[in-house]
Design a protein around this nucleic acid. Structure first.
Lengths: 165, 165
DNA sequence: GGGATATGAGTAAGGACTTACGGATTCGTC
DNA sequence: GACGAATCCGTAAGTCCTTACTCATATCCC
């Protein structure tokens, strides 16, 4: 009946500190199931590659740092993925002539071809995600709001301001 | 204006397949910030320990498997945490006399004491989580609904039923 | 009662991130 | 123009989880 009361109960029994663990559990689950989709479709593709490839396909050649900030991950994560997709022949990288610290990545022909081949599958994945989101009553928006709330004030900050009593 | 249209756009540009990555990013963030809370409070505690300790404190002695299913993680994760909290002297374990395959865990006096010491901090963490959830318009409920939606039908299943065209 | 099967837990290895640090440029200012 | 600070990227190591495999004990069934 009283939803926010229920929720408080939930958080107290689960432990407020368990929010992170819960998010991780769900993320693992979604990633794992996406991986299964690729396996069942018989394609050699890792979910981890998606963000980088998608970024290059949508926005053309980009640097490691650009991709990292677009995806919201560390440059290290991008760098690691770059190494594997480059080894797989999907991407090439070369030093930016204007700034030789920076490395410019772009899809190879083979990468472009793979992207096109994968497109229908990703489309179905996106449709499924929309469907899930609808059934879940707008998780995606809720997550975006959570992210903004954390931007406004960090968890640590919120805890500290609860007083030291 | 049309929210679900916006959302579809979002998912198409982000890529539906990015949902998992996004959840992971948020989980990392929440966990990291929780870790900062412990550091700033000057306590030697790892967020990873919380689930196991909380379970033992709330439900008394339990087996590895019981804790794993209560927390929704693999028994391996519990086993790993057990090893470290046992080494830290917070928990003891002994073979269950009724079923010697099973290992029964319980808090040591020191573990109980730590639990009591941490309680105010966790309370503040829980309050902060409630606050965040309110600002985010009910993420927790949304996540629970997402989980149920995935239980009803897996992502792979949903994708497969989108037809192979 | 004994052999096949199931179940609880542990170890090893791996996946997707992270932080910490180091190397190579570039920038900014004197 | 050079010296220190800032920036881009890479490697190493660590975190928190997972799956795959193995061992030991329990259970089932004839």
């Amino acid at each position: 009946m009283n939803d926010s009361q229920d929720f408080g109960d939930f958080l107290h029994s689960m432990g407020g500190a368990a929010l992170g663990a819960w998010l991780r559990r769900l993320s693992d689950r979604v990633d794992r199931e996406a991986g299964r989709v690729y396996d069942e479709a018989g394609v050699e593709f890792e979910q981890r590659w998606f963000g980088l490839l998608n970024q290059l396909a949508l926005h053309g050649a980009s640097s490691v740092g650009q991709i990292a900030s677009a995806l919201g991950v560390s440059h290290v994560a991008v760098s690691q993925v770059r190494a594997t997709v480059e080894k797989a022949g999907l991407v090439i990288s070369e030093a930016d002539p204007n700034d030789r610290r920076s490395r410019t990545l772009r899809l190879t022909p083979r990468g472009q071809q793979l992207y096109l081949e994968m497109a229908p599958l990703w489309e179905k994945l996106a449709l499924s995600a929309v469907e899930l989101d609808r059934e879940a009553g707008g998780v995606v928006h809720a997550l975006a709001r959570l992210e903004r709330a954390l931007d406004r004030r960090s968890l640590a900050d919120r805890v500290n301001r609860k007083g030291s009593r």
